[in-house]
Design a protein around this nucleic acid. Structure first.
Length: 424
RNA sequence: GCCGAGGUGAGGUAGCUUGGUAGCCUAGAGGCCUGUGGAGCCUUUUGCCAGGGUUCAAAUCCCUGCCUCGGCCCCA
């Protein structure tokens, strides 16, 4: 019999890793509740067409695609937004706006695995549908800010941009959408020469090149520079103004914005407006990112619905927390091992165990048939707090032996007082 | 997709240069000890990533693949 291991890029998460993951998920869920987001659970497998429609070349090439037994082309979701957009055009079509949706789960991308990158990884996802206003963009950024802060991450910062600037220039230069996407993809990969080659005119090319020079140390100054640079390009100018509005809202709400990137693009094709990513200094991979996608829902056959959303890489956040040695604020109750002195008292011991669990105490029951010495030794090694020993002598008095494993002290405690004694 | 470093029981490792009995520490199960543990002693469990080649002989040398870790690119 061969031994099995996980498929490349997929991991088993044990002990602390699993604990950290669920801890971050629970914090994300708390944020969702606080901001009024309703949780939705969508399938891991979706039609390939849905997932690939507007995701962009980069992601399309990295999807897990297969035919199911009904000969349907399906894929494992590489992100959540497509599923949420599907919901918005179907089940949630007639819900009052704004619609605030939260999801969490695993997503799949066939990348080369490396630090902070896996083929199966976890995301928490927030989408705000129905508003085109800057405060909606701001809310998504601020909620990410809240999550970073709640988790105790130090020195994290946002990188922000606006896809409308480049798209504005390109459409006014009559570049078709397909070419726009290709240019944006190259720019995203920082293959600027390749990107510029696709520009149809010298003027267009020099406009794009010029954008790269506009970065300044002050975010608001960068926005002003962009504004004057794109004078004459109406849509691009409106985009720059919109970026300024969003920036003002988030910066004044205390959100640490590190840079405004005029030529910032992201791998996903569906973005139409503000886009952002969040980083910590110790890692140059994004912990989260998102942006505005005002046209996706109508592409899926829904009414024109402005929307903005973002995703957080839970595994990467876990990595960040580990690097910053962030302490998990988890509170754990007392752990107890219940065992009987001999087999004839098993029923009594089980009753005691159940009584303690009913009172909310974490109870393990001795199931290995071990001798007491071994059982106690084992329990102590695993950091169990108390052993409750059920024996004839004490039971006659309606009591059991309660042993504090760390202190190596024990007292006879009436069963009636056991819960209280353990909890104190 | 590309580049680099590696893969020895469950975990951590020695051995590899210079081919010749796979060793150590931790861990699991159990015993010494049938109502009281952290020590000690003893028994026991699991291994050279896979396949091929060279050789009398391969963990060791060669080739291919797989996997892990890391870097590039990009993302989360």
């Amino acid at each position: 019999m061969p031994t099995f291991q996980t498929v490349r890029g997929m991991r088993d998460l044990l002990n602390e890793e699993a604990e950290t993951l669920t801890y971050i998920i629970s914090k994300a869920r708390e944020i969702a509740v606080l901001y009024g987001y309703k949780e939705v659970i969508t399938p891991v497998v979706e039609p390939f067409e849905l997932l690939s429609a507007k995701s962009g070349e980069e992601i399309r090439q990295r999807m897990f695609i297969f035919k199911d037994l009904g000969d349907r082309n399906v894929a494992l979701r590489p992100e959540f937004t497509a599923s949420i957009a599907r919901l918005a055009t179907t089940s949630l079509k007639n819900e009052p706006k704004p619609l605030r949706l939260f999801s969490v789960g695993s997503v799949y991308r066939y990348d080369e695995p490396q630090r902070g990158r896996y083929r199966e990884f976890w995301q928490s996802n927030f989408e705000l549908l129905g508003s085109s206003r800057p405060e909606a963009d701001a809310e998504i950024v601020l909620l990410t800010n809240s999550l970073m802060e709640t988790l105790g991450l130090q020195g994290y910062a946002f990188k922000i941009g606006h896809i409308g600037v480049i798209r504005g220039i390109l459409s006014q230069e009559n570049v078709d959408e397909k070419t726009q996407n290709a240019i944006l993809q190259r720019m995203d990969k920082k293959e600027y020469e390749e990107a510029f080659k696709l520009a149809p005119s010298d003027k267009c090319r020099s406009m794009l090149e010029g954008l790269l020079q506009l970065k300044s140390d002050d975010c608001f100054e960068t926005v002003e520079k962009i504004k004057s640079y794109v004078a004459g390009y109406e849509k691009a100018k409106a985009a720059a103004e919109n970026l300024g509005d969003v920036l003002k809202l988030i910066v004044e709400s205390g959100c640490p914005v590190e840079t405004v990137e005029p030529a910032f693009a992201r791998g996903l094709e569906y973005y139409t407006g503000m886009i952002f990513e969040v980083y910590i200094p110790q890692l140059d991979i994004a912990l989260g990112g998102g942006g505005r996608y005002d046209r996706l829902i109508e592409v899926f056959g829904g009414e024109s619905t402005p929307a903005v959303g973002d995703a957080h890489g839970i595994d990467r956040i876990a990595l960040a927390m580990q690097m910053q040695k962030t302490i998990l604020a988890t509170k754990r109750g007392k752990r107890v091992l219940v065992l009987s002195v001999n087999d004839s008292l098993k029923v009594e011991a089980l009753k005691v165990a159940q009584m303690l669990r009913d009172a909310g105490i974490i109870v393990e029951f001795e199931v290995m048939g071990r001798k007491m010495a071994k059982a106690l030794e084992d329990a102590d090694k695993r950091k169990v707090d108390y052993a409750v020993i059920v024996g004839e002598r004490e039971l006659k008095e309606g009591a059991v032996m309660l042993r504090n494993l760390a202190k190596r002290e024990q007292t006879i405690v009436p069963i009636k007082e056991l819960v209280e004694k353990i909890k104190s």
